[in-house]
Simulated assay, not measured.
Amino acid sequence: MEKVIEIINLNKVYKNGRGITDINLEINRGDIFGFLGPNGAGKTTTMKIMTGLIKPDSGDVKILGHSVMEEFEKSMAKVGCIIETAETYQYLTAYENLKQFSRYYKEIDDKRIDYVLEITGMLKFKNEITRKFSLGMKQRLGIAAAILSKPEVVILDEPFNGLDVEGMIDMRNIIKNLAKEEKTTFFISSHLIHDVELTCNKIGILYGGRMINIDTTKNILNNYASLENYFVSEVEQNGRI
């Protein structure tokens, strides 16, 4: 299998003592990886390092064979992401926002913009100013922006945040279809454990800044009634619930 994401001995500790310690992880092409952990475990810190938003104390992240620390532009060339919040230019329409984002990439035309708006359920809001959008609508538009350039890797921090039930089902289907049909690799952090169970094929649990277990969803569900039961068991074994 082709390794698409490699996290190697990654460390980042803040003055308050929180952060991440010695994170190692490999994710293959077409995987949908679910990154789980309690609040403050270090998930967003890890994802910010993966996307070059902050620097680690030590260690490295390689995406498609390129070091984020040493070859940032090459490592990010085929990556789409949302970290923490899906932001927009609030005085522009949904279409105008994506048109603006398309300037950073080659060969993104109006047909592609309409396509990502359609699959995220935002085409009917194409010409509306985003200032008036609900949180769920902004999240859908953020997903559209993340997949606009046909990325090989998509990194999503809380992608189901603010979505209604229909929206969650739509997002799950988009992610699974892209992974299956285009071999897009997803790295997803979420507190909505049921959606992670229904979406991801591989799970990693971060606790206290350390990766405590990595397994396939299939193996987990062969041994536990649900991903939630597995998560609770793993966290209890490591000191808190």
Rank of each mutant, 00 (worst) to 15 (best):
87 E>M: 11
88 T>H: 06
83 I>E: 06
102 S>R: 05
87 E>C: 04
90 Q>R: 14
85 T>S: 11
114 D>F: 01
114 D>M: 01
82 I>M: 10
80 G>V: 09
103 R>V: 06
77 A>T: 05
95 Y>D: 04
112 R>P: 00
81 C>G: 09
76 M>N: 13
93 T>N: 13
111 K>V: 12
109 D>C: 04
119 I>N: 04
88 T>G: 02
95 Y>Q: 10
121 G>T: 05
102 S>A: 15
90 Q>C: 08
88 T>N: 06
120 T>E: 01
123 L>N: 03
121 G>Y: 00
121 G>E: 01
108 I>Y: 02
85 T>W: 05
87 E>D: 11
87 E>R: 09
110 D>E: 15
93 T>C: 14
98 L>P: 01
96 E>A: 07
91 Y>Q: 11
101 F>I: 13
107 E>R: 14
125 F>H: 07
89 Y>V: 14
116 V>M: 00
101 F>L: 13
114 D>C: 07
117 L>P: 01
110 D>T: 12
104 Y>D: 07
92 L>R: 13
99 K>R: 14
100 Q>N: 15
121 G>I: 06
98 L>W: 03
109 D>R: 01
111 K>L: 04
114 D>E: 12
111 K>D: 11
91 Y>K: 14
82 I>Y: 02
86 A>L: 07
86 A>K: 01
104 Y>C: 01
94 A>T: 03
122 M>T: 03
78 K>L: 12
110 D>C: 08
99 K>G: 03
86 A>Q: 04
96 E>P: 06
123 L>V: 09
95 Y>S: 05
110 D>N: 15
90 Q>E: 15
89 Y>S: 12
121 G>S: 05
122 M>Y: 07
125 F>D: 04
105 Y>L: 09
115 Y>E: 12
102 S>Y: 09
102 S>G: 10
107 E>A: 10
123 L>G: 02
100 Q>P: 01
90 Q>Y: 09
93 T>A: 15
106 K>R: 14
89 Y>I: 15
103 R>Y: 12
123 L>H: 02
86 A>Y: 00
105 Y>K: 11
115 Y>H: 06
112 R>I: 04
113 I>Q: 03
111 K>W: 02
115 Y>A: 01
84 E>L: 11
83 I>H: 09
97 N>T: 12
99 K>H: 07
81 C>L: 12
113 I>L: 06
124 K>L: 07
127 N>Q: 11
77 A>C: 08
121 G>K: 00
77 A>K: 12
97 N>V: 08
84 E>R: 14
100 Q>F: 13
108 I>K: 08
104 Y>L: 12
99 K>C: 05
104 Y>G: 00
126 K>G: 07
96 E>K: 09
